[in-house]
């Protein structure tokens, strides 16, 4: 049974991409770059949401997939002088390969055990980036801009220092991740994933090999996260072990929960909101973490399903 998104839903989501496309003409430079960065990290959250929101698997180790992308792209540029497209491909592949390997092992567990196993693998990955300091630059990291040539497509040349290139590359990444996750949700595979989230035992009884489906979900999730990491490295020129640290596993969880678990628009709204909460509050007060903390508590108390989740629950039940 293949469901199709209604015209209303398609229009809404296409509308978001169009708004983002047009917004670059009006945004002041600071917010222009911010939005580029938000779109990269929102893609990370979109990848995370595939696994957590639509498959019901809570991972605390997604930093390793993001970092696989960061290093996959950054190190091939730095050491092997890859071009941007090849490096991006290497980043996506690294995320995909790592997710496959980790998925094969970690998906033998469920629930909190899965959470801890992913956490531990991510911690091992983080320490590995430190251990191979000679190659990765360790905690200090590496700058790759000096090794990264401008991208040539036909007679056009795109420099990654150009804000417009940053913005549109980020938008392209986000649009593709967004479309992939939407297509997945409406595909037969996506329905099975949601069934697993709702009741894995019953799905298994219906004859589905849930392990394979979960592995597929993990691979898609890891590849999108890797793509986000690769894009970050290319656009912002920095690779470092920070991106493999536990913080960067908590971030996508947080952004997804704030925006709305298992909603298509949740990741971008959550990422954008948390970015600006930090940005604005750190300008207003020395103690901005308190503001961030209070915002989280308030969200949980009054928007327990995240922003989009609560909107869906109360007003627009048709939102995917």
């Amino acid at each position: 049974m293949r469901q199709r998104p209604s015209g209303k839903i398609l229009a809404l989501h296409a509308g978001i991409i169009v708004v983002l496309l047009v917004a670059q003409l009006f945004l002041p430079p600071y917010h222009h770059t911010n939005l580029a960065r938000i779109m990269v990290f929102a893609s990370f959250a979109v990848g995370y949401n595939v696994l957590m929101g639509y498959t019901g698997l809570l991972s605390l180790g997604h930093a390793m997939f993001f970092a696989a992308g960061v290093y996959g792209a950054g190190l091939t540029v730095f050491h092997l002088h890859f071009g941007a497209i090849e490096a991006f491909g290497a980043g996506v592949l690294s995320g995909l390969a790592l997710a496959t390997a980790i998925g094969l092992v970690a998906l033998r567990t469920t629930g909190v055990s899965f959470l801890i196993v992913t956490l531990m693998f991510a911690q091992a990955a983080f320490l590995t980036t430190l251990h191979f300091n000679q190659i990765t630059g360790g905690d200090q990291g590496l700058v790759i801009s000096s090794e990264l040539a401008s991208l040539r497509i036909g007679s056009f040349e795109f420099s990654f220092a150009d804000p417009a290139v940053k913005y549109n590359a980020a938008l392209l990444l986000f649009a593709v991740s967004f479309a992939v996750s939407m297509a997945l949700v409406y595909s037969p595979v996506g329905r099975v994933l949601i069934a697993i989230r709702e009741n894995e035992a019953r799905t298994r009884m219906l004859g589905y090999n849930t392990y394979k489906y979960k592995l597929l979900s993990m691979i898609i999730s890891g590849a999108i996260s890797g793509a986000a990491g690769a894009m970050y490295a290319l656009l912002f020129s920095y690779v470092g072990s920070t991106f493999a640290s536990i913080q960067y596993s908590i971030f996508p969880l947080l952004w997804t929960l704030v925006g709305g678990v298992g909603t298509l628009m949740g990741p971008i709204l959550g990422t954008g909101l948390m970015f600006y909460v930090v940005d604005v509050s750190s300008g207003l007060t020395h103690s901005h973490l308190i503001v961030v903390g209070i915002v989280l508590v308030v969200l949980v108390l009054w928007f327990p399903r995240g922003i989009v989740g609560t909107v869906r629950e109360r007003w627009f039940p048709w939102l995917p």
Binding site: L58, I250, L253, L254, L257, V258, V261, H286, S287, H288, L289, I290, V292, G293, I294, V295, L296, V297, L299, V300, L301, P304
Partner: peptide
Amino acid sequence: IDYDPESTIVATIGLLYIIQQVVLT
């Protein structure tokens, strides 16, 4: 929040930030 598992994670992350900032200050 009725000890909802997901909401509790967000809430306790919020609590973590609040406690850390109070101590830092």
